[in-house]
Amino acid sequence: MKLKICGMKHPENILEVGALLPDYMGFIFWEKSARYFEGEIPELVKTIKKTGVFVNETIENIVTKITKYNLQAVQLHGKESVEFCLALKQQLSENIEIIKVFSVDENFNFDVLKPYEKVCDYFLFDTKGKLPGGNGTTFDWHLLKKYPSQKPFFLSGGIGIEEIPTIKNLKLPVFAIDVNSRFEIEPGLKNKQLLQEFQKKLKPETLNYKELHNEL
C-alpha cells in the first residue's frame, strides 16, 4: 500500500518530508486553499511522484504547471467531466498519471465511475464536505463495499494513525493512502515525526532515506 502526503507548501518542510520517501507528494494549485502552492519545489528523490492537485482548472493551466514543476501525476478534485479527462489525457505523455477524485457520502452513486475508467489511471475517494478536499473527516468506508470496479484507488479524508488497522482490514483494491490535515502543525506544514510513525505502521518494510542511499 503506497503513501501520498498532500498539501505541501514550505521548501524546508518539503525536503524533511521527502526524506521519508513517500510514494507521492501533493501540491495544491487551487488558490482558495490554505495550502495553495506557488513557490519552488526543491529537488526530490526521483521515486517520489510530484502530484499537482487541481479544482476545475483549464487544461492549458494544468499543462503549464506540469511543465513548470515537472509533475508526474495530476489529481482532479473538481467536477471534471469524462470528456475533460479524455482531452487532458490526450495532451499528456503516457507516464503522467491522472487521478480523478470523487467526494463520497451516504448518497454517492458508484455508477458514475464507469465512464471514467478508460480516461484516468486511478480514482481517489474523499469525504464530501464544504470544501473540494481537506475537510479533515473520514467517510463511512463501509460504503466502499459497493465499489464495482477493479481499478485501484486512493483513500483519503481525515486519515490518521488510528485508522491504520481498519484500512488494512479493507478487502478492497486500496492502492494508496492520502494523508494531509491530521499530520499538520499548521496548514501546509507537516509534522515529520508523526508522518514517520504513520509510515512505519502502514509500511513496516519502508527504508528511510539514509538506508536507501547506503544500499545504493
Rank of each mutant, 00 (worst) to 15 (best):
S93C: 05
K118Y: 10
P152I: 08
K32Y: 08
I164S: 13
Q72L: 12
G136T: 05
D111W: 04
L86V: 13
L195P: 15
V119K: 02
N56F: 13
L21Y: 03
K32C: 12
L86R: 05
L71C: 14
A87V: 05
I177H: 10
I5A: 11
P115V: 03
F125S: 08
E106C: 11
I164D: 04
T67L: 08
V74S: 13
F27P: 12
T47Y: 00
I28T: 07
T166V: 08
V82H: 15
I14F: 15
E215M: 14
Y147A: 14
F183E: 02
V119M: 10
A73F: 05
D178R: 12
E211V: 06
T138D: 01
I185V: 14
I164P: 15
Y209G: 02
F27M: 07
I41T: 13
G78L: 00
T166F: 03
G133P: 04
S93P: 08
F154D: 09
E106M: 07
G157W: 00
G160D: 02
F102S: 05
F125A: 07
H77Q: 01
G7F: 00
Y147L: 15
V179Q: 07
N208Q: 07
A87N: 10
R35E: 02
K2C: 06
K210N: 08
H142P: 02
I159K: 00
R35G: 10
H77I: 11
P132V: 06
S81R: 02
P204D: 02
L124Y: 13
C120I: 04
G188P: 03
I41H: 11
L194C: 02
E205D: 09
L44P: 14
Q90V: 15
I5S: 09
G39R: 05
P11V: 03
K151L: 12
F37H: 07
L20P: 15
E12Y: 14
I99W: 08
I99H: 09
Q72N: 11
N208Y: 14
K89L: 02
K89V: 03
T47N: 00
R182H: 00
L189W: 01
I164E: 04
G18S: 04
D111G: 14
V63G: 12
T166I: 06
I41K: 05
E162K: 10
E31K: 15
C6V: 12
K50E: 01
V53A: 02
N135F: 00
K130Y: 15
I59D: 05
E43M: 14
P132M: 12
A34H: 04
E94D: 13
N135H: 00
T137N: 03
G188C: 05
F153V: 12
K146S: 13
C85E: 00
N214W: 03
T47W: 01
I99C: 11
D140C: 09
G129N: 04
L44N: 09
S181M: 09
V63L: 07
V63W: 09
K50T: 03
K190I: 03
T137I: 05
F108G: 10
E163G: 09
T58S: 13
E80W: 04
A19F: 01
N61V: 02
I167Y: 14
H142M: 01
F123G: 05
N191M: 06
P152T: 10
E31R: 15
F125M: 06
G134S: 03
E60D: 10
K9V: 07
K201V: 06
G18I: 00
I62S: 10
K130M: 06
K2P: 05
K9M: 03
E117I: 09
K4W: 00
N56K: 08
E80P: 12
